[in-house]
Amino acid sequence: MCRRFRELAAHPTVLSRAAAAAVALRAGVWSDAAHRFLRRCAAAGNLHACYFLGMVRFYCLGSRASGVALLARAAAGGHAAALYALAVVRFNGSGGGKADKDPHAGVALCARAAWLGHVPALRELGHCLQDGNGARRDAAAGRHLLLHAAARELAAVSSARRRGRAGEDDDGAAASRFMVEWWALTSAEKPATAAGEGGSCGAGEEDAEELRLCSHARCGRRETRRHEFRRCSVCGSANYCSRACQALDWKRAHRGQCGAARWLAAGNAY
């Protein structure tokens, strides 16, 4: 009976219907077996697995082409977080050069993800309209979208609290949590790697010392080339993969950390 259950659990039909929580692995338990499991789920057509593995491959394992292909597969199936992930890639020209930036494509992907109810995409779209990035500038429409995103986020948090959950249990949050943990483990393993012992975490074409993480603590994205992410225009020490991450981090942390902002707030401006 147990053997039969194991066979059924590995059946493509079962793998294709695995819930997002089933494929939301933690970086601390990453292994070849975990990678194989995600590959099998993705091959079976599981959109959650396509998205999660796509993010891991693109940002953590350095497999840009296969990562984008998996994200595109999930996006084609209407996976909102994958659409937004591809939008961030197009905004930054990730995996390529500055000439590969395509803000118009990024806005189109954000609009599709926002229409599907993805709050980060809605927030990013609002900033794009406010800034005129990839779309005709419309500050009023941008503010309206940002207010709508804030209301949606507040409603989601309230609903999660009523259910006794933390509030960020969707695919996007799970992938970001994995990446944050992955780079923390990579940082911890640097001494061993430098000593020639090797390391299981981290990959890429450039030295990790030269590539910066998004300063939003809950994001986890890392640059794919030097100076890819935008910097805080006030202090220049914080880096962001998107305007949405920049705005969120300003509210949650950077407002109190930005040295120049504190200096201005103290009334020391000329």
Rank of each mutant, 00 (worst) to 15 (best):
C232H: 05
K190Y: 15
G204P: 01
E181A: 13
R225S: 07
W183G: 09
R222E: 02
A156L: 07
A195I: 11
K190D: 14
L213M: 11
A217R: 13
A195E: 13
E189D: 15
R165Q: 09
A156V: 01
W182F: 12
R222Q: 04
L213E: 07
S200F: 14
L211S: 03
D169A: 07
D207N: 11
D171W: 01
C201G: 07
D170G: 09
R222H: 01
F229I: 02
E181L: 08
G199W: 12
R162S: 10
S176Y: 00
E223K: 05
D171Q: 10
L154R: 12
G164L: 09
G220K: 06
V157P: 00
T224I: 03
A184L: 14
S200I: 12
R222T: 01
A184E: 15
S176E: 07
D171A: 14
R218Y: 00
L154Y: 04
G220Q: 05
E223G: 09
A217N: 08
S215Y: 10
R231F: 04
R165T: 10
A184F: 11
S200T: 13
E197W: 11
T224R: 08
A173I: 00
A173Y: 00
L154I: 02
G202A: 09
C232F: 07
D207Y: 01
L213G: 12
R231D: 05
D170W: 03
C214K: 06
E228S: 06
R177W: 00
K190Q: 15
A184T: 15
T224N: 05
S187H: 14
T224V: 08
A155R: 02
T193D: 14
R225N: 07
R225I: 07
S159H: 10
E153T: 08
R152E: 04
H216N: 13
R225K: 10
R225W: 08
A203E: 09
F229N: 03
E205M: 11
C214D: 07
C214I: 09
C219G: 03
A195G: 11
T186Q: 14
A194W: 13
T224W: 04
E168H: 04
R212S: 12
A217L: 10
A184Q: 15
T224Y: 05
G196R: 05
A194C: 13
C214W: 09
R152Y: 02
E228Q: 13
R212A: 12
G220E: 02
E210C: 08
C219Q: 01
F229P: 00
R226H: 04
E228F: 08
R221S: 00
A174P: 00
S200N: 10
R163V: 03
G204S: 05
G196I: 02
A174K: 00
G198L: 13
L211R: 07
A217Q: 12
A160M: 01
A194L: 15
R165W: 02
G199L: 13
A208P: 08
L213Q: 09
W182S: 07
E206A: 10
D170A: 02
P191K: 13
A155L: 04
E189F: 14
G199I: 13
A188S: 15
G196E: 06
A174I: 01
H216S: 10
A150V: 03
A150T: 06
E209G: 11
V157Q: 07
E206M: 06
S187C: 14
A149E: 01
R212F: 12
A203H: 10
L154F: 04
H227Y: 07
A175I: 05
